[in-house]
Nucleic acid binder design. Structure first.
Lengths: 331, 331
DNA sequence: GTGAAAGCGCTAACAT
DNA sequence: ATGTTAGCGCTTTCAC
């Protein structure tokens, strides 16, 4: 592999001159520039990014920490982050945690200024204590979960408001026995979505029996299916369900269908995340659609500003969302 | 950030000793080891991976190039690659190409020994010419598409055989007007799957009218839906469709349902890839299920062997697969 | 405008 | 068993 020195020797100039040409710095005598460019082409020189970054004190990478890339929401998110990162000349390093605390802590500890210029993390089991002191030493932004008392930038949507809108929609469709699937005291977002749900019910004087709040540890299809099965076994089954993500919702729809219930006639279902598949499922899924591209872009930009020395107060960026009304609530 | 030198000074020993302790090399006097460990803890030392790798002549990264991470198959694949890479102390850098040739070529060109120790690439539009001379200079393995005359390791499944098994299944369910969706002369895998399809038909003396071979440029839901719409508009509509991936299949199922066709009663559908969702869709999808974890592991191991100097002949690793029989063909 | 040389943090000879 | 030192490839003062 050709180095700067090789090119310099071939061109008969100093390393500095070659470096200048490569980086487009200062003025180089046209003749020298020509010679350098020829030598560059002849050797097929490619800069050693590692060495360059070692010298510059930056790494050229940002890390993205997610539970699992195989979950469509995180796949879509990661795609957006990669795209956004490219606009700042960053490559993206992806780490998976399975949504478990130990891997999350370990991943954070393994990150550092030597490895990445920043980290975008989507924690699932991390405790507030784990984050009171930024464990990475690089700019960090939190996605989704929002540990309130933590001095770290956050990007997300207004979960309370989003949940309220989702449930209002169900009410407007004439439903009044509305359940939720996904309650989980360890997830801040779940708590927020539950609050929005209660808000919407209260607004119209509806109440919610405690057994209508179905918990879920993971948010996979299976969990949604199991929760739905329990809800439908209740003496008075709900006529609508608000699920805290799309996978829960698809699992719930399937469980309903297996028991002979029609969605939405017998029971309406709303999801959260608007993953690609929800537009094509049978029935297509009504769901809260966060602007994922904006989310990714905001997170990356935040890292960029922070790594350029921006030390303004901790930010909480709100990303817009919409309610996509589809067949699972309108038939 | 504490450096090796800082730790050495604090512990009152040389950098070498600290380095020895950190890397677990040779024998260190117990007393020194203790002092070093204390200093390590006191300074919160973390090795500068960039510098270490610069010195070692490795980067600690492998690249994974895929069309889009938002496509579930690639999300699942990427998850597997990250997991497998960790067993060799590699972090994974993911690049997206949108399945277009220019970004694919550009990405390959941007990779190099300075950036990554190897690359796992899932090309979609790359031509044989782009690969006759490994453009990265690092060990590379091709996934899926298999440009036959290229001197690069390949990992994948036997597409001809898999397609044959899928279509045989359809035949065994009593179907005899079997169409395919996904034909694309630019994709080697499509050609192979089409061959398997024809094989299966020939085995039982069935023929396939040319209009039963529906092309698809991209392999998204929409493309499957459009293709299915055209097939159903045919004077003699098919009674089964073999789709070249699960997204095409889900799109096709939806298009059929929108036109009042029941799957599988009126038309059976088989997919390819077995993405997570296919187990929970309505109807659940019969599909070819490659062992994705094995695929990822094989690809990473190949890179590992090659980067350790293995220069045995080009390999083509076959990964096992199964046919998952579900509701879309058995109702 | 261009060259010489220092040094980013680390590891591997080499010396002790 | 431990210290000293050169150097990975690059950028960047500082002279010229």
């Amino acid at each position: 592999m050709a180095t700067l020195k090789d090119v310099a020797e071939l061109a008969g100039v100093s390393v500095k001159t070659v470096s200048n040409v490569v980086n487009g710095y200062s003025f180089v005598k046209p003749e020298n520039e020509r010679k350098v460019r020829e030598a560059l082409a002849a050797t097929g020189y490619k800069p050693n990014v590692g060495a360059r970054n070692l010298r510059r004190g930056r790494t050229g990478f940002i890390a993205l920490m997610v539970p699992e890339l195989s979950i469509p929401y995180f796949g879509e998110l990661a795609g957006g982050v990669i795209t956004a990162a490219h606009t700042h000349d960053w490559s993206v390093l992806i780490e998976q945690t399975q949504g478990m605390r130990d891997p999350e802590v370990a991943t954070l500890a393994s990150l550092g200024p030597h490895m990445v210029d920043g980290a975008i993390i989507s924690p699932e089991a991390l405790l507030t204590d784990d984050l009171t002191h930024n464990p990475t030493g690089v700019p960090m932004v939190l996605l989704g979960e929002h540990a309130l008392d933590v001095p770290i930038d956050h990007v997300g949507i207004d979960n309370v408001q989003a949940a309220r809108i989702a449930v209002r929609h169900l009410i407007s469709m004439g439903r009044n026995r509305i359940a939720v699937i996904g309650q989980n005291p360890d997830r801040g977002t779940a708590t927020q979505r539950l609050a929005g749900y209660h808000d919407a019910l209260n607004e119209v004087g509806l109440t919610c029996p405690p057994e209508y709040v179905a918990p879920a540890v993971r948010y996979h299809h299976r969990d949604g299916a199991e929760a739905m099965a329990r809800l439908l076994a209740l003496p008075e089954a709900p006529d609508a369900v608000f699920c805290f993500n799309d996978m829960l919702a698809h699992g719930a729809v399937r469980a309903a269908a297996e028991r002979g219930y029609h969605v939405p006639q017998d029971i309406a279902v709303v999801g959260f995340d608007n993953t690609e598949h929800s537009k094509y499922s049978l029935p297509s899924l009504t769901t809260i659609a966060p602007d994922k591209a904006a989310l990714a872009k905001a997170a990356v930009n935040l890292i960029h500003e922070r790594s350029n020395g921006d030390s303004s107060p901790v930010q909480d960026v709100q990303i817009p969302f919409t309610l996509e009304v589809r067949e699972s609530t309108t038939g």
